[in-house]
Amino acid sequence: MRTKRFLWIVARRVIRKIADGICLCGFAVPVFLPVVMVLCSSVKSEYELSELLSPILSSGTGEINWQFLSLYPTAGHFFQLLFGTPDFFTVFWNSLKIVSLILLGQLVIAVPSAWAFAAFRFRGRGILFLLYIMLMLLPFQVTMLPSYLVLNRLHMLDTHGAVILPAIFSTFPVFLIYRSFAGIPGELLEAARIDGAGEWSIFTRIGVPLGSGGILSALVLGFLDYWNMMEQPLAFLQDKTLWPLSLYLPEIDIRQAGRALAASVITLIPAAFIFAMGQEYLEEGIAASGIKA
């Protein structure tokens, strides 16, 4: 009798797990599907791609017929991209430079800003924070024209500075980092002040280490955002030598679909690495906000 009950409990748990897995997979598959399609298609031969994409390439009618497994898999597209397309590397390093400088700038600007909002109580703090949130909610299309005018006046158009400078002063990382700084108990800061620590010491020795999760989360999310940034380079960069990856991929002719897919895979890799490096902090940040809530 006990054995039966025990088996029934185990079976129920297994069934529940399976059901949960199926249900979650059902939601996860559409999310993963595009990535899987890109990965599978990047090793398809040109012949297969031209056959599958013929409704787009030639006739313009009919439906695309897709297959996951390739009949004639090839690494030729990657070879062609990595050893025969030097302009890809130009845009790759441009993207890396832009993103690195933005994140570095945000570390310098956004972290102290978030600390100021979290650690200090000053007049107009609420209104200012509200303003930050409003700015965060404004789409790029709204701020594009004033940004263009300012950058033009500063003679920064058609330089990487036109993309980096506005992003450094983005309000989104301030908001994210503020949440982690806000979680530091005020009593700890008071205690540090009582112990004679200056504000800078409190910020660097207490605030930043305890808020590192939020900072790293902001950096990871910022990397993912700016690595795929498109509107700002399109609006402010005319010189093709300054273009990032996000503008290069649409330039690839659809007839070179293999190369475009290989470039997409390569573009995914840094983001995957960054996410892998910051996944823990992202999860901690999400979990911590949940607990606090």
Binding site: L82, F83, T85, P86, F88, F89, F92, W93
Partner: peptide
């Protein structure tokens, strides 16, 4: 790959 692709190009 940057250097190699540029050289080949």
């Amino acid at each position: 790959c940057t250097f190699v692709s540029r050289s080949i190009y």
